[in-house]
Design a protein around this nucleic acid. Structure first.
Length: 491
RNA sequence: CGGGGUGUAGCGCAGUCCGGUUAGCGCACCUGGUUUGGGACCAGGGGGUCGAUGGUUCGAAUCCAUUCACCCCGACCA
């Protein structure tokens, strides 16, 4: 399998598309805008899921499952919510097919029209809050801390594998609280979980903060987010956590009796990350040689390639490899032995490099004599010879150091590509040259943000938490501003 | 949804303008042999309703119409 990969400088977006397909992470499907996630890609998603799920459970959440379909009328209950999603909803109108009168295939049976149409969930707030009404009577029923792993559908006009697909996989947390403070605390707690996951597991540094009103979730009082910077200088929203206030409780009449025996509306949050994280992972670390996957999320962390001329040599090497694998596994390292006889070592090297396996061990007759192996790390492409003694500890440390290095590299990149702009010319020049995050003053009005977007395609990605307050002048209008916010062009 | 581009073997392409034997090439695939520490070599071989549908024609990958998918740019959106 010859893998020709467009280079990043040549065409970043083509590089990404090529990589996703050639590394067999995902394919386009027969359904417009929907992808097939292939085993290589799904294995990474499963590792993300497992870790996130663990973190949700550790913070007191439980999993549940709500229906794929939502009665259409539910949607109109919360005004800004319907406004945000109406334009991208798939609608189910019938429940039956019948043989076509002309004998060719099947047609929708007009007799089987639904009384009330269903929409395919673009997110589940409405169906969940309709359900919560029946779960909640008293403050003793609170909080409810539920998460669901699900697919959702948003009928996007322009799609890209993982980054924006019509159907995607995600988790959505939906919590209900007795007080505003508790709900806000929950929203922020989840934001920390997301940021932690992004940095420690995906090795992607993220900015934590608030969205501007323009970028806020439809139906939220406040949207918190983590925002990452990709190698082409564009920002990617990697996760959002919403403080929903009492908007959905009011729309779905969810009230509880407090300790003083008074009825109050419930306070809500919702939060999610999706398969879009796969896109973030790919674009953050990978290079012109193919995928680079941080060890903590790599389905296979170590691959062993034997180098031999004769069957006898292979046999001797394999005996050694069995020992090495057992030792590595004792440290919890996932390892594969690539002893396929149908490919040459050089071919395998390239293949595993392309697929992003963090560490490759090569072992041949020379190594058997010397008690060594050749170890290559994917992040730097460096090769070195290791004594086989205590190899599992050395590899364990190597994996940790790769994980660290990827994070440090991404962090350094972000720092090199975060700029302060104090004039409009400077602002535009940065966008047109390097891209990246731009820290600039903004007068705080949605109108100004919109105008900046119209002229430059840049939006406010995040208003950092605990943002430094400083007097300044809006980059666009020159009106007084109290703080800098982060602008960028975004995915 | 608007503008542009591309659909020919698993992948990448030529052939289309100017219709005419059996539709080619590279990689991949299969068989045999030699090989194996960074994508091996030689020989032989298999694989195509030319995106789909309809039309023009004695004859269509090629001309016409419709349609579908994908890519790029815009609009929309998170």
């Amino acid at each position: 399998m010859a893998k020709e990969l467009t280079t990043r400088v040549e065409n970043y977006s083509q590089w990404y598309n090529d990589l996703v397909i050639k590394a067999e992470l995902a394919d386009n499907s027969a359904v417009r805008g929907c992808m097939v996630i292939r085993p290589n890609g799904y294995a990474i998603w499963e590792k993300m899921q497992a870790q996130l799920d663990k973190m949700f459970k550790e913070t007191g959440h439980v999993n549940a499952y709500f229906p794929l379909f939502i009665p259409k009328s539910f949607f109109s209950r919360e005004a800004s919510h319907v406004e945000g999603f109406a334009k991208e909803c798939a609608v189910v109108t019938h429940y039956r097919l019948k043989n076509s009168p002309d004998g060719k295939g099947v047609v929708v049976d007009p007799e089987a029209k639904l009384e009330e149409e269903y929409i395919v969930r673009p997110t589940s707030e409405t169906i969940i809050w309709d359900t919560y009404r029946t779960w909640i009577q008293s403050y003793r029923d609170l909080p409810i801390l539920v998460n669901q792993w699900a697919n959702v559908v948003r009928w996007e006009m322009r799609t890209r594998l993982f980054l924006r697909t019509a159907e995607f996989l995600w988790q959505e947390g939906h919590t209900a609280h007795a007080t505003r403070e508790e709900a806000i605390t929950e929203t922020e707690k989840i934001l920390d979980v997301y940021a932690d996951f992004a940095e420690k597991w995906m090795a992607i540094p993220v900015l934590k903060g608030l969205k501007s009103p323009n970028e806020r979730f439809a139906g939220a009082v406040e949207t918190y987010c983590i925002e990452a910077l990709m190698q082409d200088g564009k920002a990617l929203q990697a996760g959002t956590s919403h403080f929903l206030g009492q908007n959905f409780a009011k729309a779905f009449d969810v009230q509880f009796l407090n300790k003083e025996n008074q009825l109050e509306y419930v306070w809500a949050t919702s939060w999610g990350v999706s398969t879009r994280l796969m896109g973030a992972l790919i674009m953050s670390h990978s290079d012109d040689h193919g995928l680079v996957i941080p060890p903590k999320l790599a389905p296979t962390q170590v691959v062993i390639v034997p180098i031999y001329k004769t069957d006898d040599q292979l046999k001797q090497i394999s005996e050694k490899v069995v020992e090495i694998m057992a030792a590595l596994r004792s440290k919890g390292i996932t390892v594969k032995y690539d002893d396929r006889d149908t490919f040459k070592p050089g071919w395998k090297f390239n293949e595993h490099e392309f697929k992003g396996i963090p560490v490759r061990i090569a072992i041949g007759p020379r190594d058997l004599e010397n008690g060594t192996v050749e170890v290559a790390r994917r992040d730097t492409l460096e090769k070195s010879v290791y004594q086989i003694t205590d190899l599992e500890t050395k590899i364990e440390h190597l994996l940790e150091s790769i994980q660290q290095n990827l994070y440090q590299k991404a962090l350094a990149f972000r720092e090199e590509n975060t700029f302060k702009a104090d004039t409009w010319d400077e602002f535009k020049r940065i966008l047109d040259t390097t891209g990246g995050f731009i820290s600039a003053h903004w007068d705080g009005t949605p109108e100004t943000e919109q105008k900046i977007k119209d002229e430059t395609k840049a939006t406010i990605r995040v208003i950092p938490l605990n943002n430094k307050q400083e007097e300044g002048k809006c980059i666009y209008t020159g009106n007084p501003s109290k703080q800098r916010v982060i602008f960028a062009r975004a995915y």
